[in-house]
Nucleic acid binder design. Structure first.
Lengths: 234, 234
DNA sequence: ATTCGATTCGTACACTGTAAGTGTGTGGTG
DNA sequence: CACCACACACTTACAGTGTACGAATCGAAT
């Protein structure tokens, strides 16, 4: 339409993989991962779909990149703190980041191409445990147990169909009307006596399971004899 | 088997929602959820794509139905056993079912339309805890902690890019070559000293976290005073 | 044989990712 | 200044997706 040659004052920032990833994350945050299409992403960047392919091999590379950006947003505490505090803080930060990018949880694990941020993160977790006297076996156990809990919780949280107390009430009500109480009595009890209570927030459940896990690891550690970490094998 | 008045040899089983769901699960088991398309599903059933829509409103309804079928495959122990044994068995059964249907884990929670099998399952878990003296609050905590762990673990397990020891070795080797050891020393250590060891099986990690969680719940229960369950409120 | 409801199918459309080839603005050279 | 090379953006095209709409076919009751 515009036949003129760049009378526009815009400095015309060139596209880049970073800008593509940032825009993709914004789009996914707003409309969910299924609403992220190459054409919409291009439009968001003021560009045509195929232009993206100069900066990115294919859509999968975008998804992998998004995951790594999200991983990079997780705060890894630094300084001289004990492992339990360190693990608690990174767990809380992880959940927070994942709740800001709800689409990410099911992708964090399902993308098999690890990026640098993910590797850094994992290396930090493992290193912190090793330096705190965890044996290799216990480190593997701890890593698995903690991350399973964190991602599992985020997964549950992501998919809860309600965000506000009113929504909770409406959904529970609909549930109770559709399904006779006497068929699922305990579910009904929990819904009415707990979930519908004012001030209920599923997110609060995170702390309980987190402390349970951390306490369990602490106990497991004290029961095993620590071994000094052996860095740089080979 | 029974030959009707049909001159045709085939008895021509009519389509049904159940048959559609079963075929969909087979297809997803074989090629992953992304390979499940309406046309392939129809072909699998010897039918055209649009014929499916008589038995099913849309693809989402198929996905919801698949999740509920999978939930129905989980064994819920019956009889007079204590809560810990009951929870352990259902956790193990859940993981087993999820590993048979790898696509299911990320869908179990992301489908917001609960089916009867899911409701039955949840009701059973909550009821077992309540009848064992868990308070409503602790039941909610326990439910959240256990399920987060189970699904989180399944999520991790689903996405591990290897199934055999050889694959593990190959991937670790590739990792060590691509990324300098001194950048991720602890990750390298764990890989070489633990994951590459013969007999390693990530699935074995499940038990550790499960017992850790169950022990934690047991401790939490013994520290709180039990309340009798109040069934059928309102 | 006719009718009718229950199923199944054919066609069409908007939308997806992306292969292949075509422009085009910009900075470096003469 | 003109020119060019090339990094970058665009055009077109294609196979595959879910599904709306209406027509065709089946099985059984009349």
């Amino acid at each position: 339409m515009s036949t003129q040659t760049r009378t526009n004052a815009e400095p015309r920032i060139p596209l880049s993989k970073d800008r593509v990833l940032q825009a993709a994350i914004v789009l996914a945050d707003e409309g969910g991962i299924e609403s992220l299409t190459m054409r919409k992403l291009a439009k968001e960047l003021g560009v045509e779909a195929m232009s993206l392919y100069y900066h990115v091999a294919n859509k999968d590379e975008i998804l992998d990149g998004m995951v790594d950006v999200v991983f990079g947003e997780i705060d890894l505490p630094s300084g001289e703190i004990n492992w339990k505090t360190a693990m608690r803080e990174r767990a809380i930060s992880t959940r927070k980041v994942l709740s800001l990018h709800p689409w990410a949880t099911s992708m964090m694990q399902s993308r098999t191409n690890p990026g640098p941020a993910l590797l850094r993160h994992h290396n930090w977790v493992i290193g912190t445990l090793r330096e705190s006297g965890f044996s290799i076996e216990l480190t593997a156990h701890a890593f698995s147990a903690m991350d399973a809990y964190i991602y599992g919780f985020s997964l549950q949280e992501e998919t809860l169909p309600f965000d506000t107390a009113e929504e909770v009430a409406a959904i529970v009500k609909a549930f109770l009307e559709h399904f006779p109480v006497d068929e699922y009595p305990y579910l009904a009890e929990l819904s009415v006596e707990h979930i519908m209570k004012p001030g209920y927030d599923y997110g609060d459940e995170f702390d309980f399971g987190l402390e349970l896990t951390l306490d369990g690891l602490e106990r497991a550690q004290s029961e095993s004899e620590p071994t000094t970490p052996k860095v740089l094998p080979i």
